[in-house]
Nucleic acid binder design. Structure first.
Ligand SMILES: [Zn+2]
Ligand SMILES: [Zn+2]
Ligand SMILES: [Zn+2]
Ligand SMILES: [Zn+2]
Lengths: 151, 151
DNA sequence: ATAAACCCTGAAGCTTACTATAGGGTCAAG
DNA sequence: CTTGACCCTATAGTAAGCTTCAGGGTTTAT
């Protein structure tokens, strides 16, 4: 009924086509993300179009920031679409978006602190004896803990 | 000549003051970042003001995104200020800034891809059979490698 | 027939920054 | 005199996502 499988790919071919390593593919398999549809007589993994599509899904999701663990869950949703709701799926992307926003916010904070430091330094050929970068880093650090309690 | 050391801190005291764990401190030592000025008779690490300041430098640098390895290099610059130039130090922060900018750019790209996905989904109570998120992830992935060369 | 280029498994190693565990010494209070 | 809170060393484990290695089969070209 379904279009017949024209031909299978061996692991090296699939890896080359996907631009990842053979070892990564085997690793994904070991993590339960994707396995070959069948094996050849000599035990070689053989991948069908279905597997290729699944790998596409995985790499797609990876590209937008999902971890392999999360992708495994996504693959579960994908496989049993009828047992899950759009809401569930959307919640998943929503959570990920917030996570990424948090990471961005942290990095932006770091960057601005770094830029202040950077811009204060003359960057000249003189020795760093009075370098403002080193001085600022050295300045009393506000240990964010209680200051009291000397014995 | 120099102001005398009023008293030393034991590792637990320094850790509490800095808001990090004793184990982290010992780890930093094992990585060659900071070591106690001396040891008490029973082998306890004793930290002077100098060490406290150095730890401040470390935590400061950590906060703005330097790795321990990089901090080790920074400590080297700090220690031998007279053998290095402002330029060198400034190059270091410059490189770090570019690194962070790259990370931010990557995350922003991820986020916008995710947001497109997210916004296209209705998020309703129906089953995910036609969920646009899953469909888009499943769509033919452009493997960024040569497409030719069929046997 | 033999070397190159594939494929297999299972286990170990890498990176970063710690945390935990095992086994044991030290010190002050009750 | 023992309990608890410290301190010590050395080693192993954690997370994530691979990579490398050891040891061994298969296929294809020369
Ligand atoms: Zn300068
Ligand atoms: Zn400077
Ligand atoms: Zn929907
Ligand atoms: Zn949906």
């Amino acid at each position: 009924m379904v279009a017949m499988q024209t031909h299978y790919l061996k692991i090296g071919q699939l890896a080359a086509r996907a631009g990842i390593s053979v070892e990564s593919l085997r690793y994904y398999e070991s993590e339960g993300l994707i396995s070959a549809n069948c094996r050849s007589e000599n035990g070689y993994r053989l991948y069908s179009d279905e597997s290729i599509q699944k790998l596409g899904f995985i790499l797609h999701a990876k590209k937008i920031g999902f971890s392999l663990k999360e992708i495994k869950r996504l693959l579960g949703l994908r496989l049993n679409r009828d047992q899950h709701t759009c809401e569930e799926v959307k919640d998943y992307t929503g959570a990920k978006i917030r996570e990424i926003e948090q990471k961005i916010a942290d990095l932006v904070k770091m960057k601005s602190a770094l830029v202040s430091l950077h811009e204060a330094c003359c960057g000249g050929n003189e020795t760093a004896d009075n370098c403002s970068i080193l001085q600022t880093l050295e300045a009393p650090f506000t240990f964010e803990k209680i200051e009291s309690g000397d014995s």
